[in-house]
Amino acid sequence: MSRTNKPWYTLKNQSGAAELMIYDVIGDWAGLSARQLVDSLKTLDSHDITVRINSPGGSVFDGIAIYNALRYHPANITVRIEGLAASIASVIAMAGDTVQMAENALFMIHNPFGWVSGEADDLRRTAGMLDKARDSIAMTYSERSGLPVSDIEALMAEETWFTAAEAKEKGLIDSIDKPVKLAASFDLSLFNHAPPIAMEPPAAKPVPKPVKVEQEGAGDAVVLSIVRLCNQAGYPELAERCIRDQLNPEQVRQKLQDCENIKSLCAAAHAPDLAADFIQSANTVDEVRASLFDKLTASDAMVNNTLTPDQQQNTIKPLIDTAAVYRHRNQNQTSPA
């Protein structure tokens, strides 16, 4: 599933009634972070908040933070599951004082999972962290449904998918609404027992055929290869995104090279602190170059284009056309008022 610059959430507040729409993978990308959302919710002065969900999940800890921000907000929270509430998105749904679900929607709970590489102690720490996350999530479902935690843990271990009627029977939702027509745009291949999504696909955009894995275990090998590449390049945080986007190792190598190019661009523009935000926001190299050019030409500060000793010994193609920056600035300074 390819990433775009479309935000994964929107928050609107009008006349004391707010609407939060979570309609994509939950996490820090497209320039929006869960921390930004939590901070906005803390300062939101509304009597009623409607949360609309159609999401396959995402970052576990981001989702827990959003759940807590909603749960402890003084407003009345109404959750509407309009398509899919899977994984951590279903935990967020539990924050509602009232939880409604479209008749054709799906609700999924499972044990949290993640990727890690390192020595034995690293693996043990990660396993302990996942166990604690599982216990916290199971308690959340139990408090809403009234089911024993042990029953919830068994359902999570099996990766259980619920229809609206089944979710209501288990006490996970309060009511069932009429069906909602939505495009099925999520890649659910990371899950083990995902059923076919009975939502209407867009007429002008046929659903691509899934890539077939020729032999059992090949998918795991690709995942491990991606994790290893990201760790070796110094970008372990990109592994989850690359796996979620179903990139092959060659595409991952290109993405990592783009990250290095972005860091070089920012360094050349004497703005190395901007590199992490550009990379996190999934900006392309061309977009970063254009953004830095705009910042440089808009600044009144002197531009230091002195080459380092290493750069003086090598003939390289400049990442930023500093001559164009000077021309642009000189034109602005010499033009009559």
Rank of each mutant, 00 (worst) to 15 (best):
E143P: 12
S299L: 01
A102K: 09
S59W: 11
L292S: 03
L44Y: 02
P74I: 08
D24I: 00
F61H: 13
T297W: 02
H328D: 09
S225Q: 13
Q251R: 09
I243P: 00
A127L: 10
A184G: 12
Y23S: 15
K168T: 07
D131G: 05
A120C: 07
F113C: 02
F191V: 05
I53T: 00
L123N: 03
Q215D: 12
S15D: 15
A271G: 01
T43H: 09
E143V: 15
D39H: 12
K255H: 11
N192K: 15
Q254W: 08
N68P: 09
A218M: 15
V51F: 01
M101Y: 01
S185F: 11
V223G: 09
A282Y: 11
W29R: 03
R35K: 13
A275I: 03
V288Y: 02
S40I: 00
E237I: 04
E250K: 14
E214Y: 14
L292P: 02
A165N: 11
A105D: 10
T297Q: 02
T98C: 06
A133E: 04
S299A: 06
S59H: 10
G217S: 12
I243N: 00
C242Y: 10
M156R: 13
A105E: 07
T10N: 05
D121W: 00
L70P: 02
R244I: 00
L182R: 15
H328G: 03
V25L: 12
I66P: 06
V149A: 03
T4A: 00
D39A: 11
N332H: 10
I197R: 14
R327P: 08
R329C: 01
D294A: 10
A167V: 05
A269V: 06
T306Y: 10
L307E: 11
G63P: 04
I243H: 00
S335L: 15
D135H: 13
T140S: 11
L238T: 03
A138L: 04
E169K: 12
A17M: 15
A239K: 03
G217Q: 11
A157F: 09
N104T: 06
N283P: 04
A290T: 11
Q232T: 11
P201N: 09
L32Y: 08
D97A: 02
A184K: 14
Q313W: 14
G114L: 05
V303L: 04
D131C: 09
A34M: 06
T308C: 04
D187S: 07
G219W: 14
G16L: 10
P112H: 04
C230S: 00
G96K: 03
P74R: 08
S117N: 10
P74F: 05
L247M: 08
V252G: 06
A65E: 11
I320P: 02
A233I: 03
R329M: 05
H73P: 03
W115I: 07
T50R: 07
